[in-house]
Design a protein around this nucleic acid. Structure first.
Lengths: 356, 356
DNA sequence: GTTAGCACTCTCGTTTGGTGAGTGCTAAAA
DNA sequence: TTTTAGCACTCACCAAACGAGAGTGCTAAC
């Protein structure tokens, strides 16, 4: 990506580059001068176009798979397209708008909501979608309650201000009366509510349990659960990985397997998404980012492009939505889809768990 | 599968069939008489083996991809292997036992538990795993509570006797005092606890809400949520679909894409699993079942085999664990893995949500 | 019943042309 | 100066041809 070189292209060159990309994206075949002259009314003969193509190739915007094949956009070519040439209409075509309307009913269960979002994003863009659940690391405990389910079990319910709802069964070493549970609950609430999850150190909790020595074992158990929420919030939701597998460019032997197993490695993906939510000088904050082919840090993704956007809760960025497809993808659609879906998810979350 | 034909095979034929399967499963290459004679000490010359191979092919247990290639087991061949020849050791090899020990800590959160189970099953068997969450249709409400989270929101917490824990935020049309919430909670508990979820008709609920006319809108909302639990419990967890994609036999053009998109169609998969948990005369109840290649109802799965087992809560079958791989798979390992994992999951669930 | 020998078959990899799409270059036309 | 027509050239793709090798089935000898 070496620092956004500025290419001075004549309007005609822009027009031709645009046509090449458009044709290649839709057909998947290298496109030649003859095709361009016929299909797009540039008012130019193949010969003239050939000259321009040669220039564009010299600039590094096009590639030739082999002599005497047509031209194919290079990663840099796509870059220029995305940065300068692409039509940046906002909103979606009516057909897709209709699809969104059909899925107007948003689940109020966080995992469901995430999965729905991933699925809709995938269907709208025709690519594989990745959605990251709201980061919990800096979230605060908003609500905490222990409920007696049976004599030997209690249910721990916890809500953070970022929407994670945890509930886990806790087995009680000794039966506790409802009153005792209430005492513990109140005590926990007093000490833990409004605490950031990531500052919930073992130290703080042992301090608590010392004060409530009688319930030490229960409290220890509870601590484990509460802090587990932090990681489980990091979950990723992927949808329609088959879209990626169906791309002809990945039909080669082990390619699909590689991509899929990458998609199954949550850690790698999370790290990847992290790089896309970190603020960077060149990109306005909150904008959708596009990472094309070899720009991707992971070598396995060199044939792919990733379009990402962030969503928010309040004024905090808490997660990302990503679209993963072959470099030969519909960038305009992808960008718009991410814009629409991040917007939509932000709204849904704020409505659900908004600060009140 | 036309009714388990019984093949009368001489011990030597069995030995040879076994050797062919073993070799083909591990190498993926058609195996010839020479190889068999060298690698497996059958004490026979290639010529003799050729005669036997010809007989086995006549019986339909082996196939020849083309004249002058080695032999490959047919679906029927695998069937005979699985039904009569396979070593039915129970338990797992030490290395895998170690893996299980490493994952001894089971999550107490149902979705986590399911995902963990799927993952471990996949890793142990080296195939793609599918785990179905406990069916909720006949489950009963065990516990129900409304908690005031803020002025305008309440949290509905519900536990069924099959372990599904639902919690969803409900927005209140008008602020309700904690006391009012308690009234509603108690009322709901009186009427709904111990009710089977699938008989929770709208009728019953409108009757309730008539009695509590003041809270009609809240109750209606609650009803929607409660009954939604039924379907969301039907969720499937898949893991390591990349294993399937990496099999050389599916490297052909669209094959991987087909399989993956099948795996993404929850409805189709659920239907499929249903057929494997329904009792059938030929199979002892609770046994692991194997469906080989063309025996599978779905044409897309004709190159695959599916090994399934059921797990239980109490004495009820509530879900299935499945292993999906190419027909050329390690059946013994797969069967044992399913045995071990269903057993393990049953125990975990009973411990967590056991009737008490 | 088993095995050695042999002719036969068929896939696979390589080679060899032929075809066609597409190019680059040059020189003529605008 | 820009555009275009013409032409020779390149190279992937396809099909046919061919040899090598693996594996077979059959027959006759052990």
């Amino acid at each position: 990506m070496d620092g956004r070189v500025y290419f001075s292209l004549t309007p005609r060159q822009q027009q031709i580059l645009l046509a090449v990309i458009q044709d290649y994206v839709s057909t998947g075949e290298p496109v030649g001068s003859r095709t361009l002259s016929k299909k797009y009314d540039l008012g130019l003969s193949p010969a003239t176009i050939r000259n321009e193509l040669a220039d564009l190739e010299e600039e590094g915007l096009l590639r030739q798979p082999h002599t005497s094949a047509g031209r194919v956009p290079s990663d840099t070519g796509y870059r220029v397209f995305v940065d300068h040439l692409m039509e940046r209409r906002s909103g979606l075509p009516p057909e897709q708008e209709r699809l969104i309307q059909e899925h107007r009913h948003l689940s109020r269960d966080l995992p469901d909501l995430m999965q729905q979002t991933a699925k809709l994003t995938a269907v709208l863009s025709g690519c594989t979608a990745i959605v990251r659940a709201p980061r919990q690391s800096a979230s605060r405990i908003k609500y905490l309650q222990l409920l007696a389910v049976s004599e030997s079990e209690a249910l721990l319910v916890m809500i953070t201000d970022r929407g994670a709802v945890t509930n886990q069964l806790v087995s009680l070493p000794a039966p506790l009366s409802p009153d005792e549970l209430t005492v513990i609950t109140n005590f926990l609430n007093d000490h833990l509510v409004n605490q950031p999850l990531d500052r919930l150190t073992q130290y703080a909790v042992t301090k608590i349990s010392r004060e409530m020595a009688r319930y030490e074992r229960v409290l220890d158990d509870l601590y484990q659960r509460v802090s587990a929420t932090q990681e489980s919030g990091e979950r990723l939701y992927t949808s329609h990985t088959s879209f990626l597998a169906q791309q002809p460019e990945f039909s080669e032997a082990g390619k699909v397997g590689q991509l899929l197993s990458l998609l199954e490695q949550e850690k790698a993906l999370i790290e990847l998404l992290d790089t896309f939510s970190a603020p960077v000088a060149e990109v306005p904050e909150g904008a959708v980012r596009v990472s094309i082919g070899t720009e991707n840090p992971l070598p396995d993704l060199h044939g792919c492009s990733l379009v990402t956007g962030t969503y928010r809760l309040g004024d905090q960025v808490v997660g990302e939505i990503g679209i993963l497809g072959p470099t030969r993808m519909e960038y305009a659609t992808a960008v718009r889809t991410v814009e629409v879906m991040t917007e939509r998810l932000s709204r849904a979350l704020n409505e659900l768990f908004g600060l009140d």
